[in-house]
Design a protein around this nucleic acid. Structure first.
Lengths: 205, 205
DNA sequence: CCAAGTCTGTCCGTTCTATTGACACAACTT
DNA sequence: AAGTTGTGTCAATAGAACGGACAGACTTGG
């Protein structure tokens, strides 16, 4: 019966995260003030704390929401190449790196001097993020290319996620070049071949 | 400070009107039950009554919202012909009649047998609607074609609104044909000429 | 190294709002 | 005429948000 109330809660959550996004993108997580956040949305500080138990929880939710949004785009990139594993991986990785390079939140996380309190989500405390990305990608790959050996598949997905994350934090080349290299690596892991590029349009059985 | 609260109120209003729209479009205003309306949105009946003082008020707001939405489209139709009064009127009227023919709410209002409680808004109790439409259109026309004589302008706007409303309730021909006839009439009233169609692209000074 | 200031996270009393259940009243049905 | 259904209102209760205050951690500057 209280369905509307529920809607209001999620709306409040979204508004708070929107405001947090704007502030973090501009000044970094460290300079984010809970009081300002509440004020932005037009709500008391207590109400904010009843939605997010701590400032850390805000950062967590903020990062998670952004990650989930990215995953949507990644899936679309994968979908564009249903018959070519290498091209799919390359497209997904390229998309991710490009997005990460543009995303104000991620840029703020990386450029903020020293310990921003949010950067660990991308590096040391990124277990949850890794798990989410890995399981999402893994499930998708398992469904789209069931013919790939499960063990090799898991290894490949894990490598893809970790290598991509690494390039997000520490860019080595252009997104396209990095994507090409990562896709090469992933395909080798997945297919166990040393050739690098299997004939396009085929999926090994 | 209570900015979020305000947003929630308007959201509630919109949700209630959305639900009302759906129910009225399907079963008519008479068969609309306040209890169902509250239930649809997930709110108590009292909360509904604290937002709309009566069922009549729901109908009023529902009709008004629909009218205002129409006016947006009408303005766009007018905007498409800034240099040709006749074409502008014809486009706006044609748009209105076509929209009215498709709009589930208006269709329900017209087709519901006998007294639906909502039909009067289109006919006898439509003073507010007429005023809104007339003032909106009048202000727009006054700004876009300031050269037209004010007295003739008011007469023309009034005629346009009333004729269009009449055709909404009692369609005589296709929207396009009706629009053409109404545009003819309006231009005659506005320009005081018996020629019907002044050369396009000109505005008399 | 201490004092002042800032910010987080928590508690509590007040105020505002929604919910619930009941009711009188009107209209319609059987 | 009695029963049903729905509107509109009221009062009591429950629940949220607010404002203000506080301790504790941390930073800054003298």
């Amino acid at each position: 019966m209280a369905r509307f109330r529920e809607t209001v809660r999620t709306l409040l959550r979204e508004r708070l995260l929107d405001a947090a996004f704007a502030r973090v993108a501009e000044h970094g997580f460290a300079r984010l003030r809970m009081a300002h956040l509440a004020g932005d949305v037009g709500v008391s500080r207590q109400t904010l704390y009843s939605e997010f138990s701590s400032k850390e929880a805000v950062g967590e939710a903020l990062f998670r929401r952004e990650l989930e949004r990215c995953l949507v785009g990644i899936q679309q990139a994968l979908d564009a190449h249903p018959d070519d594993l290498r091209a799919a991986v390359e497209a997904a990785v390229s998309f991710t790196l490009t997005l990460a390079g543009r995303n104000p939140l991620i840029r703020a996380m990386l450029t903020s001097a020293g310990e921003d309190g949010l950067l660990p989500h991308l590096t040391t405390r990124s277990a949850a993020a890794f798990e989410l990305a890995t399981t999402t990608a893994g499930a998708y790959v398992a469904e789209t290319w069931p013919s790939v050996d499960p063990v090799a598949r898991d290894l490949a997905v894990d490598a893809a996620v970790r290598l991509t994350a690494s390039h997000v934090v520490q860019a080595a080349a252009s997104p396209e070049e990095s994507a090409r290299r990562i896709a090469d690596t992933v395909v080798r892991v997945a297919l166990g071949t040393g050739t690098g590029r299997p004939p396009a349009g085929t999926v090994p059985g």
